[in-house]
């Protein structure tokens, strides 16, 4: 019985195994990125970047159809362009990051829609919008694995400045010129992970894998390192449960995985030991000192 529920879907069907591995790769890269986004109060930046990527991917689709390489490249170019332009404008004018990001991503989105309408064809963007986690081919799996690997390596290199850029940017600026570069590279990592995510979850829901596990992890751990580990664990848990629920109940897979992450988030919000609601309502008697 337990075997039928939990194991046999993966044992019997290759597409389920591929989906599982793909989502694991996704969550391993996305977890630390999401944690940093959340801690820097940039949780909504992922959403903006997802909109910025969409037109790039659509243009890639227009040029060479449903090609992994073209859509990935298009998404990367559009996303990184928006990230870098916004970062440069923020640091050289009086605009704050939210304002400059908002202006560039909406320009990117409008340009993308214009380009698509020029072509006049009614293309099926469902794949781009909602992903196809149950149809991951070898190339896509490899891409996801590459993205996770690169993300972890780059984060390892810039962990110290990135952390300092979050806690005390003024200090980082006074001891090093690397702050701006760190920030831009980080934004590009966000883009890379979203581009990976849209193959599995679609552009818009890719943000879910980035943010939900990270935000849920905030309720479980105090330090940044443990928080990243917890986020990866929660993401993996959401992948497994989402895949199983969607298999047994016949629901769309991508959204079900994100919904599972949502359930885990609400659970964490309620009972997490760091600021969870139950802990706040019943904190226990105050301590002696």
């Amino acid at each position: 019985m337990l075997y039928d529920v939990f194991i046999s879907p993966f044992a019997e069907f290759e597409f389920m195994r591929r989906a599982l591995i793909g989502s694991f790769a996704l969550t391993i890269g996305a977890a630390p990125i999401g944690v940093f986004l959340m801690l820097r109060r940039m949780s909504l930046v992922g959403d903006a970047m997802a909109h910025a990527i969409l037109p790039g991917a659509a243009v890639g689709y227009l040029i060479s159809g449903l090609s992994l390489a073209a859509m990935t490249a298009g998404g990367l170019v559009a996303g990184c362009l928006v990230a870098i332009l916004a970062g440069v404008v923020t640091r050289n004018t009086l605009l704050r990051e939210d304002a400059s990001l908002a202006s560039f991503y909406i320009i990117s989105l409008a340009a993308g829609v214009t380009l698509v309408s020029l072509r006049g064809s009614n293309i099926d963007l469902l794949h781009v919008l909602f992903g196809s986690v149950l149809a991951l081919d070898d190339d896509t799996l490899l891409l996801l694995a590459w993205i996770a690997t690169i993300t972890l390596l780059v984060l390892a290199v810039m962990f110290r400045p990135l952390l300092l850029e979050c806690v005390d940017p003024g200090f980082l600026r006074s001891v090093s010129r690397g702050g701006t570069v760190t920030h831009l590279v980080f934004l590009c990592l966000v883009v890379v992970n979203l581009v990976g995510g849209f193959h599995a979850m679609g552009t818009l829901l890719a943000v879910g894998m980035l943010m939900l596990p990270a935000i849920a992890a905030r309720f479980w751990c105090a330090g940044v390192g443990p928080m990243i580990a917890a986020a990866a664990f929660i993401g993996a848990l959401a992948s497994i449960s989402g895949l199983l629920v969607s298999y047994h109940a016949g629901l769309a897979t991508g959204p079900t995985i994100i919904l599972s992450a949502g359930v885990l988030y609400i659970f964490s919000l309620l009972v997490g030991p760091h600021g969870g609601l139950v802990r706040q309502w019943a904190p226990g008697r105050h301590l002696e000192a």
Binding site: L39, L163, C166, V167, D168, P169, G170, F171, S174, V175, S176, R177, A222, G223, V224, M227
Partner: peptide
Amino acid sequence: REIAYLPQAADIDRSFPV
């Protein structure tokens, strides 16, 4: 960049978990 500098209002994010 080698000068130690304590600004008037350090822009430290005090909610950050360090």
